[in-house]
Design a protein around this nucleic acid. Structure first.
Lengths: 219, 219, 219, 219
DNA sequence: GATGAATGAGATTTCATTCAT
DNA sequence: TATGAATGAAATCTCATTCAT
C-alpha cells in the first residue's frame, strides 16, 4: 500500500509539469505557432515523453483549458457562496466571470479557441470529457444561483432557472468574447459606433441590462 | 480603353471561382483539415495559382468570411428596412441574425473561427480589412435601429445607442455562438441543466429577455 | 553447495522461457515487425527484464537461431548414424536438411536472416559464438560423411572431403533457400520458366544432380 | 510535344540522383544503420522530396537492388552471347555471376537482403515488381542457355531445361551466398573443416562439380 | 533481479508556401 | 500568369535501449 499511489502521484506531477511547460509556450506563441518541440524543451523532456502523456497537441491544449475551467469554476463557486441573495449570487458570478477574463486572459482565450474548435473536432479523450464536464459545472452553478433567486424572490417569479441559466451564460460569454476580440479596437478606432471609454464600462452597462430583465416584471 | 478593365473583371471572376471552390472544401472538411491541394483540385487550378490570388490559406478563408458577412449585412439591412418602429427594427435584425445562423451555418461558423483567430493573427490584407469593415457595418445597422427606437420612443429613453448596439451585438452573438457549439448537446444530454426543447425556444427566450430590458423603465 | 547451482538453473529456465515467448512473436510477425514489447508481454515479464538476459534484440534472435541449429544438427547426426555407407550418409543428411526445412520452416527462415544479417552485424555475444560453432558443426558432419564415402569408395576417389563438404553445404542451402523464398511463386506463376510441380520434385531433381557428380568419375 | 517528355526525363534523372545518393549511404553504413536524413543530405534534397519519389526506405532500397539486377542481367546476357555452345554459355553465365559478385559486392549483398526480406515483406511497388521481373529474367537467360545445350548436345539429353535452370540458379546462388557470408571466416579460421585457400578456388571447385553433372550420362 | 517510465532516434506523413520554368 | 515540383517545418508514431527505483 503506497507504491502504486506514489507512482500515481508522480505520474500526475509529471503530467502537470508538462502542462506547466505547455502553458508557457502555448500562451506566449499561440496554439498554432507553438511546436511540440518547444514544449518538450520547456518541459526538459523528450518529445516522445509528451506523447506518453497526451494523445496529441490538441489533447495537451485541452489539458491546459481544463485547468482554466477549474480556476473559473472555483471563482464561480466562491462568488456563489459570497452572497446571501440569489440575485446577488448571480451578480457576483457575473463579476467573477469578468474577473477571470481579466486575471487569466490566456485561459479565457483558450476557452474561446476550445469553443471554436469544438465545432470541427471531436476528440474522445479524458481531457475532452473533462472540459465538457467542467463547462457544464459552470452552467450548473449559474442555474443554482438563478434558482436561489427565484426561491428568495430576488428575481422575477416567472423566470425559469433551467432556461435562464444557459441564456445568461451565453449572454455573458458573448460580451466577454467581444471584449477579448473586438472591444479595444472598436473603442479606440470607432468611437462613432461604440460609445464606451473602456472595457469596464462596457461590461458594467451590459450586466446592468441583463440584470434589469431578471428583476422587473413584464408590465 | 477596356482591356485593363476586362483583365480586372476576369481576375475578379477567377478569384470568385477560387472562393467558390474553397468554400466547398473548407465547409465540408473544416478550416484546419482542408488542404490547399484540395482547394486547388476543386478549383481545377494548380496550387501555385491560388497564391497568385490570395496571400495564404488564412487570407483565402477571410475572403470566404467576407462573403458571409455580405450576406449577413444584406439580411440586416433588409430587416432594418422592413419595419417602421425602432424596437421592431431591432427585433427584426435579431431574427435576421438567427435566420442567418440557420440558413448559412457554415458562414456563421466561419465568423466564429474568425473571432477566435483574430486574437492571435493580425493579417494586413485587403480581405482582413474588408472583414473588419463589414463587421462594423453590422454594428452600425444595429446602432441605427437603436437610435431609431430612442427617437420614436419605442425603447427606453435612458438607452444610449452607441453603448447599447455593441452590447446587443455581443449578447446576441453569444447566444447564437452557444447554439452553434453547445446547445444541441446540452438539450439532448443535459435536460437537468438546460430546460429547452430546441434551439428555437432558446433563442426566443433569450431575445425576450433582451428586449425586455430595452423597453421597461427602471423603477 | 547447491544454491549457486539452483540459481544458475533458474536463470537458464527463465532464459528459455523468454526464448519460448520470443519465438512465438518473432515467428508470427517477422523479425523486424516484432517488438520487444510484444516479446515482454508474451513472456509475462517487463521489457527491462529481457535486457537482463539478452544484450539486445538481435542477441535474443540469435538465441532462437541457436535452438534451430541444435535441432538441425541433431537431425544431421541422426541421419549420419542411420546409414552405413558414406554416400548414403550424405544422402541421408541431404534429406534431413530438407526435412528440417519442412518441419521447422521458421527456424530455417531464421537461419536465412542470420546469414543475411551476418554481413553487416558482428555481435560479440555468447549466442553469436554459439551460432557460429553450431554452423561449423553441421559442416563438420557433412565433412565426416564425405570422408566416409571416400574411405568406403562409395564416392569418387578424387573428391576432397574438406572441399566438397562446404560446397555441398552451399549447394543444398542454395536450393532450400530458393524453396523458401521463390519456389512457390515461380511454380505457380511462371510455369514457362520453371518446370516443377512442387517443392518435393525440385529438391529431388537438385539432389540427384549433386549426387551424380559425387559418384561418377570424370571420363 | 517535348515538354512532357522533358519533364519525364528530368523526373527520371532526379530519381536516379536519389538512388545514387542512397547507394552511397546504404552501401557504406548498411541498410538498417543508414537513415533517410543521411540520404537526403547526400542527395542534397529535402527529406520530403525523397518520399515524393519513393514510398519508403525499403522501396528506395528496392530501387537500388533493381539497378544491381540490371547490371547482373546485362552481364548474363553478354556471357550468353559470348559463347557458341550451350554448355559454354552456361559456364560463361556462371563465371559472370561470380564476376558480378566480385565486382559489385554491394549489389550482391543487396540481393541477399532482398531474398531474406522477401519472406516477410510484400511491398506492392513498381520497384518491387521490377525486382521480381528482373529476377525472373536472370532465370530465363539460364534456361535459354540450358536449352541451347540440350539442343546442341553439349549437355546430357535427359536434362530438362525448365527444371535444370532454377536448380542451377539455386546452386550457384548458394555458393556465392556462402562466399559472401561465411567463406572468408571459414577459410581463415577453420582450415580443419574447409580445405580452400581462397574464394576463387572454392567457386572453381563447386562449378566443376555442377558442370560435371550436366555433361556425364548416368551409367 | 525486476520494473516500467523515459529517452532518443528515426521513419513517415502532411502541408503551407515558394520557386524555377 | 500558370504550373507543379521542391522545400522545410512539424506532427505523429514507433521502438530499441537505458535507468532510476
Amino acid at each position: 500500500m503506497g507504491i502504486t499511489e506514489r507512482k500515481e502521484r508522480e505520474k500526475e506531477q509529471r503530467k502537470n509539469a508538462i502542462i506547466d511547460a505547455a502553458e508557457k509556450v502555448f500562451f506566449s506563441k499561440g496554439l498554432d505557432a507553438a511546436t511540440m518541440d518547444e514544449v518538450a524543451e520547456a518541459a526538459e523532456l523528450s518529445k516522445g515523453t509528451l506523447y506518453l502523456y497526451f494523445q496529441n497537441k490538441y489533447d495537451l491544449y485541452l489539458a491546459i483549458n481544463s485547468r482554466g475551467l477549474d480556476i473559473m469554476n472555483a471563482m464561480f463557486e466562491k462568488a456563489f457562496q459570497s452572497e446571501e441573495k440569489g440575485l446577488d449570487k448571480i451578480t457576483a458570478i457575473g463579476r467573477a466571470y469578468y474577473e477571470y477574463y481579466k486575471q487569466y486572459p490566456d485561459y479565457f482565450n483558450s476557452m474561446i479557441h476550445w469553443d471554436a474548435h469544438s465545432i470541427d473536432m471531436t476528440l474522445e479523450t479524458e481531457n475532452a470529457r473533462e472540459c465538457g464536464q467542467k463547462g457544464n459545472k459552470a452552467l450548473e452553478i449559474v442555474a443554482r444561483a438563478v434558482q436561489a433567486g427565484v426561491d428568495d424572490r430576488t428575481i422575477r417569479s416567472d423566470i425559469d432557472p433551467l432556461k435562464t441559466a444557459p441564456v445568461l451564460w451565453g449572454l455573458a460569454t458573448g460580451i466577454l468574447h467581444m471584449l477579448a476580440t473586438k472591444a479595444d479596437h472598436l473603442i479606440e478606432e470607432h468611437s462613432d459606433i461604440v460609445g464606451f471609454k473602456n472595457q469596464d464600462e462596457m461590461v458594467e452597462y451590459a450586466y446592468r441590462l441583463i440584470r434589469f430583465s431578471l428583476t422587473n416584471h413584464i408590465t
